Simulated scan of single mutants.
Amino acid sequence: MYSKTFDLGTVRRETVVTVRLNTMANVRLLTEVNFTAYRRRQYYRMHGGVATAPLFKISVPATAHWYLVLDVEGLEPRPLHPQVTIGELTEP
């Protein structure tokens, strides 16, 4: 599959969402309103960008209900096998 959607539920401001990817992908962190607009192919605002490395971290800008969308739109179409962690990732 070339896209994955994660309903993160209510996430507190400054929480770190960590995405581990097997391929380059677009990472879109969207509020409920913007997620609905994204699905309807309307104008939307997002946080994120293109993940060019296997590990992508994004800090949640406000406490709200969030969705995370990963896709390869505009990139080489490869199946996505992401791992998503909500909360600070402990690095050794």
Score class of each variant (00 low, 15 high):
M1W: 06
M1K: 11
M1S: 13
K4Y: 07
K4S: 08
D7I: 07
L8G: 09
R12N: 14
E14G: 02
T15H: 02
V17Q: 07
V17H: 06
V19T: 14
V19R: 03
R20S: 14
L21E: 07
N22I: 06
T23E: 15
M24I: 14
M24K: 15
A25Y: 00
R28Y: 15
R28C: 01
L29N: 11
L29D: 08
L30S: 01
T31G: 07
E32Y: 11
N34C: 01
N34M: 00
T36E: 10
A37L: 05
R40I: 01
R41C: 07
Q42G: 02
Y43H: 14
Y44Q: 03
H47C: 02
H47A: 04
H47I: 02
H47D: 10
G48I: 02
G49I: 00
G49E: 05
V50Y: 02
A51P: 06
A51N: 08
T52N: 12
A53S: 15
A53K: 15
P54I: 00
P54C: 01
F56A: 13
F56W: 13
F56N: 07
K57A: 11
K57F: 10
I58P: 13
S59T: 13
V60C: 08
P61N: 06
A64H: 15
W66L: 05
W66Y: 08
Y67I: 03
V69A: 01
D71C: 01
D71M: 01
P77A: 04
P77R: 08
P79Y: 07
H81Y: 07
H81Q: 10
H81F: 05
P82G: 06
P82C: 05
Q83C: 04
Q83Y: 11
L89N: 06
L89W: 14
T90G: 05
E91Y: 11
P92T: 08
